[in-house]
Design a protein around this nucleic acid. Sequence first.
RNA 1: GGCGGCGUAGCCAAGUGGCUAAGGCAACGGAUUGCAAAUCCGUCAUCCCCGGUUCGAAUCCGGGCGCCGCCUCCA
Length: 489
Amino acid sequence: MTLRLYDTAHSELRPFEPREPGVVRMYNCGPTVYSSPHIGNFRSFLTADLLRRHLEARGMNVVQVMNITDVGHLTEDDLDDSGEDRMLIAARREKLDPYAIARKYESEFLAAVDALHMRRAQEYPRATDHIPEMIEIIQGLVANGHAYVVGGNVYYSIASFPRFGKLSGKVIEELEEGARIAVNPEKRDPRDFALWKTDDKHLMQWDSPWGRGFPGWHIECSAMSRKYLGDQFDVHTGGEDNLFPHHECEVAQSEAFTEKVPFVGTWLHTRHLLVDEKKMAKSLGNFLTIEQLLGEGWTGHEIRLALLRVHYRMPMNFSRTGLGESRAFLTRIQECRARLLRIAHGQEAAGTDDATIVLRDAESAFGEALDDDLNIAKALAVLSGLVSDVNAMQPSVESAQNALALFRRLEDWCGCVGDEPDVAAEVGGVLWGGKPDDPRRQSLLDKTAEREAARKSKDFQAADRLRDEITAEGFKIVDTPRGPRLEPL
RNA sequence: GGCGGCGUAGCCAAGUGGCUAAGGCAACGGAUUGCAAAUCCGUCAUCCCCGGUUCGAAUCCGGGCGCCGCCUCCA
């Protein structure tokens, strides 16, 4: 089975074939860095990360580019009473200049990327570093008749591009009806969109053939994808809201400029998530950031899994309950792997069961699930079945090692399996499952030995009291035929 | 007004014409344990409603109801 992806442009599942065999060029619509990235942004970014990992697991070489939008995109509607855009408002609110704001939130974004175990893209181009590339395309569009200049402004002419609306399935004639854009008399058609604008009040300005101004809202992606991936590339991802007008405009700009079709092979759009059944909004107080969740004590893997475990095209509700379920899922895998490690290290009796077939079938089913339009829910079910199968076995040392290797491969494949637990250390008949350098290690081991002695003399009251003390230190004590084991709670 | 998506057990969620409707969490019964934890075994749904097509539908068609998204900066 080969990978099939749902391509928005065709509204159907299609076999995925990169233009150049073995190499996938992918562009992801990235964050706008004038505020903290929120978990909704990351559902989209994580979908891209999962696709990248799966392609790499399938032996592809993936060139991934994610833009950093650091230009406040100004439209007529963006303007508030004082004529400022959002970047400006943020700058004033935080008493920083707009570049400083952008850098601050860019760092925050990248920190979250790492925290969620996402692979770093090869490039994170900033819009403000690519003004000349944008100007080049705008000039080309003016020259070939797809754009026109009015004063210091340049507009894209929808009428010049008959395919406009094809990607999103919009009927252009009907767009007008619902449009809430104020009529701009400069435009030949109200649906034309800006490529370059002049506005004295805009803080970020650059020289251009049309005077000092700033780029329109869609041109950066056309310019930066072209620079790093070429005129045509394989995958373009984004949130569902990007479909129209943003991606539609990108297609119009890029295809009209390069005269190469198609601009993008596969369009992938991630659905918005809801938080506690409602759309996430600052006004509702349900606006969640990665930083915030990490602060609540959730791990990167838990957050990642909670955001990724529902198929990317399905509506998804994000909640603390969901995070808790993710934690339980990961803990179950950890327990399984810890036992395998003990067997592999001779700390627990090995059996004679051969896991070869179970492991092979699980790995194969896991890959097939992801081949099916990144069906992560199905893949996680396979993973869960693997845990059950392995738990029911008495594996040989070799099978335990092979199973451990498979878990590591699957973590590499989807990032939702978690890290391998620390190898327990045997100290004086007690298995220590905590960090090797935990300062409390000796005192906890002593206390465990003391409890063991109490148990042997049937003084269970004393034994339970000692266990409570150990629990209070954040460790649980597990009795096994080979002796007690200490594990972090 | 236009376009689109979703509705499966207490919760999350697979399954797009056909053996007994995956899997996880929770719950319950049992094994194991000094008691626990973990683990194992077992129990737990006829698929929003109505009508139709079919030998046969959660799966296809029509009509409802409900929730959501895009059409405007937004992942």
